Amino acid sequence: MTKKVAINKGKIAVYLLVLCAIGLVYWAYASRPNVEPEDAKPVSKIMTYNNNSLKEEVNGKLIWECYAEKMSVNQDTQIVDMENIKGTFYREDGSSIEITAAKAVYDQAKKNIEITEGIKAHSTDDMAFETDKVTWDGEQSVLTCDGNVKISKPGMVATGDKAESKDAFQNFKLMGNAHIIKGDINQ
């Protein structure tokens, strides 16, 4: 005895149509191009350190060192942003000049430092200066003050727009509106 099963061709057609629709949706989703938005930017890798320091040595001799409360290092560009810094530049004769400021940026590739905001500096030989910006050019070994420069030493006060030195301000060149007062400056 064989039994005949009734096949409903309409239901089969609906099931096939639904399966085709699901397959079409899957194909459209799976084969779409992987396009990132035009305004998408690569994410930089930033490492942050607290209470850290950097230094530069040449032939085993310490040239400068800088302590910062906070440092952020961009691993892609090798730029170090520093906050609340205290830096020291060492002179040939063993004396040094200490600089404090709110911000500094160090370019590790070029070995340049730019110090800004609230700069105060003094040396072990009673020299002091204030300025808007201090730049260390590591390639040329030149320390530059830019903007509202005031340098004081015993018996001398110098002001100008810019000052440059190759020996951490034991000697310096003053430029732009340069004015020097020598002698007893307390009178």
Rank of each mutant, 00 (worst) to 15 (best):
D81I: 08
A163P: 08
N52Q: 15
E117Q: 15
N34M: 13
A30R: 15
T116L: 08
G183S: 06
D93S: 04
T48P: 06
K150P: 02
M1F: 13
I79W: 03
D137P: 00
Y26V: 08
D126V: 09
Q78C: 07
V43M: 13
I97L: 12
G183I: 03
I181K: 07
L24V: 03
Y106E: 04
M156C: 00
I22E: 05
G160I: 03
D132E: 14
K162L: 10
V5R: 12
L143D: 02
E36Y: 12
V142Q: 12
C20A: 15
T77C: 01
N171C: 02
N52K: 12
D184Q: 09
D167R: 02
G60I: 09
D167H: 01
K70Y: 01
D184R: 08
V134T: 07
K162A: 04
S123P: 06
V14M: 11
G23D: 03
D137R: 03
K103E: 06
G176M: 09
S72K: 15
W27I: 03
E98G: 08
A6E: 13
G118K: 04
T100E: 07
L24K: 03
G183C: 00
G60H: 04
T144I: 11
E164N: 10
T135K: 12
F172G: 05
D126T: 11
I151V: 10
M156N: 02
L16P: 07
D81P: 01
K9A: 08
Y15C: 06
P37K: 13
I85D: 00
S95Y: 01
D137C: 05
V73Q: 08
I180Y: 02
A121C: 07
T116R: 10
N8C: 06
K4V: 14
E98H: 10
E130N: 13
V25D: 02
G23I: 02
T100R: 07
F89E: 00
T100M: 04
T77W: 01
K182M: 14
T48W: 06
I113C: 05
K173N: 13
Y106A: 09
E98A: 13
D125T: 10
I119Y: 04
T135L: 13
K150E: 10
N186H: 12
N171R: 11
L19A: 13
Y90E: 02
T100P: 01
T100A: 09
K55F: 14
D76R: 09
K166W: 06
D76L: 07
C20W: 10
A30T: 13
A109K: 15
I99C: 05
W136Y: 15
G176Y: 03
Q140G: 06
S53N: 10
Y67H: 00
N51P: 01
V149T: 07
T88I: 14
D107Q: 08
I46A: 00
V58Q: 15
